[in-house]
Amino acid sequence: MARIALHYFPGDSSLHRWDARCKFFGLLMITATLVQTRISWFIFDSILLAGLFFVSRFPFKQLFHELRFWAIFLSILFLFQSLFTPGTRLHSLPWLPVSKEGLLLGGLTCWRLGLILGYALLFTAVTRPRELRDGLIWLFKPIPFLPGRRIGLMVSLTLRFFSRILDHSEEVRLAHRARMGDRNKNPFRKAKFLAFPILVRSILEVEEVTYALAARGYREDLPIHLSKIPLPHLIPLLFLLGFIAMIGWFQ
């Protein structure tokens, strides 16, 4: 599975240099627009995503090659929606067991998920885990009795493990298939021979990460100095807010 998808991709683009807190608020605004079902929001978000990917100088070829898993997943979802949504059959292809409404719903669902995925990929590609952690600490700072530093660390670790588990599951699946394990239809045995190695590998990685953190002297009581968000970094965020307000106003 993915080697660069959902991992940080080093670079020196303006998106890489943009303050992580601003990126975070930008992502929140975009995900709020994706809840809408109007096509105009989808078109706006798609154009913006394409532009941001271009600005980030992300290696598209490698990314598209690694997105096969997501493509299969979205295709299955599209098939489910178009086959099982009741509605009128297509006039030109009446023998096809799909409905117009199903095709529309499936298309919109996949478009929306593709956009959410695209923005998440971009956000993780241009934001260092440390920047994300610091951003969350900054966000949780006003809330008393909340271990902001620990929560920040846990969120960045969760994102790291998420992509690592996907890597592990692909390796284990291939190893399982090479041993003809896919012929076994018993779900309990399958779970034991597929999920158990993934769990074990992940737990072994937990050990490595724990010792790495301990070796670096991870402490929660050290004071953290987070700088103010520079004013020029807020300008793109205000532009984005303006665009969203404008589109919302005209609808």
């Binding site: 997943f73 979802l77 489910f80 929606q81 099982f84 620990r150 660390l153 846990m154 969120v155 670790l157 969760t158 994102l159 790291r160 493990f161 998420f162 690592r164 588990i165 996907l166 599951s169 769990l199 992940s202 737990i203 990685e205 937990v206 050990e207 990460v209 724990t210 010792y211 953190l213 301990a214 991870y218 402490r219 929660e220």
Partner: peptide, 30 residues
């Protein structure tokens, strides 16, 4: 922070990541 506690912090993150992976294996039935 003691290593045991640090280990639980990392293990908790792993379980949250597993929940996220679990959400990708889904059947949309309604």
């Amino acid at each position: 922070m003691p290593v045991e506690k640090l280990r639980m912090v990392v293990l908790t993150s792993l379980m949250a990541a597993l929940m996220a992976v679990g959400s990708y294996i889904h059947v949309p039935i309604g």
